[in-house]
Computed example of a mutant assay.
Amino acid sequence: MLSSPDPNKPNLLVLVGPTAVGKTALSISLAKQWNAEIISGDSMQVYRGMDIGTAKISPQEMQGVPHHLIDIHSPDEPYSAAEFQSGAEQLIADITARGKLPFIVGGTGLYIESVCYGYQFTDVQQDETYRAEMNDLADAFGTERLHELLLEADPNAAGRIHPNDRKRLIRALEVIRQTGKPLSKQDEKKNKESPYNLCLLCLTMDRAQLYARIETRIDQMVQLGLLEEVRNLLQSGYSSELPSMQGLGYKEIAAYLEGNVTLPDAVALLKRNTRRFAKRQLSWFRHMGDMHWIDVTPPSSEEERLDQINTIIRQTLGG
């Protein structure tokens, strides 16, 4: 039995899904229909000058729909899940006060889930000495060694962090070192109930077709000037070692521009890494509760999908 929306809670519409599944176009249709403003739930689209590699929506594609948390940082300015959470929560309050529907769209699971369920992030300061030690360890024995250490100390966190994700592995180990508590204890601080009337939608697609779309998108990015975009960033003084430059599309092309790999190898690596990323995105969304799954595998029609989604929104949020 469906529960009625709580009149004391703001409504929040959320659309997630793996990269290249078709979130952007659908989000514009839904935003227009439901008088919504979109909050980007993408950890990379916050960076100015990083447009092609992040598949950032253009002003023309926005079709007049207000978008937030896009182009708010330079590539050398750090951005975190906690900062996203704070900004998104303020935006949700502001959008609601204007009589419109806040609508988070994106694919960064931790960021989006932190807002949906009110994570309380551990306030742990960076320990640069410890981080340098862990980076040296990874340089000597591979990032997999960091994953092994985390697996021993916090199996739950290790299961949710990719063995090659050096930054998050070191952060998880750093939290344990400073607090004596596993990072996965964050889940115990997650509210059992969302602070919002929450409507969670996740787009999914036949895996072979999704992977084909990913490869086509990457070919299009290269044609649109991905190499020039990365070259301009490097020439502007943004190091390839910056967290922002470790994003998909940037680290692979930077490796080519710096003479470490051939262009065909860089593009092939980008395609492989993006396929793996999409798989991890789906794994994350599967563990989130209350998710409505929308299969957008062709030849399903956009009209049918919109009818299905609009019914879910009405049943969940009212209206």
Rank of each mutant, 00 (worst) to 15 (best):
G109S: 13
H73N: 12
A88Q: 05
S80K: 08
H73G: 01
I72S: 03
A88Y: 01
T96Q: 00
E77Q: 14
Y79H: 09
A88I: 01
K100T: 10
H73P: 00
A82H: 09
Q85P: 00
P102T: 14
G107T: 01
G106Q: 06
A88N: 07
F103M: 12
G109Q: 14
P75M: 07
T108A: 10
S86K: 14
Q90G: 14
K100N: 05
G107M: 02
E89C: 15
Q85H: 00
S80C: 06
G109P: 07
T108P: 06
H73K: 15
L101C: 11
Q90I: 04
H73Q: 12
I95C: 06
G106S: 11
G87H: 11
V105R: 10
Y79S: 13
D94A: 15
Q85L: 01
L110C: 04
G106W: 03
L110M: 14
K100F: 00
S74E: 14
K100L: 06
P78M: 06
L110S: 04
V105S: 07
I92R: 04
G109Y: 06
S86A: 14
H73R: 15
A81R: 05
V105W: 04
A93L: 12
T108H: 00
I104H: 10
E89D: 11
G109L: 08
I104A: 09
D94V: 05
P75Q: 10
K100W: 01
I72E: 03
E83F: 08
G99M: 02
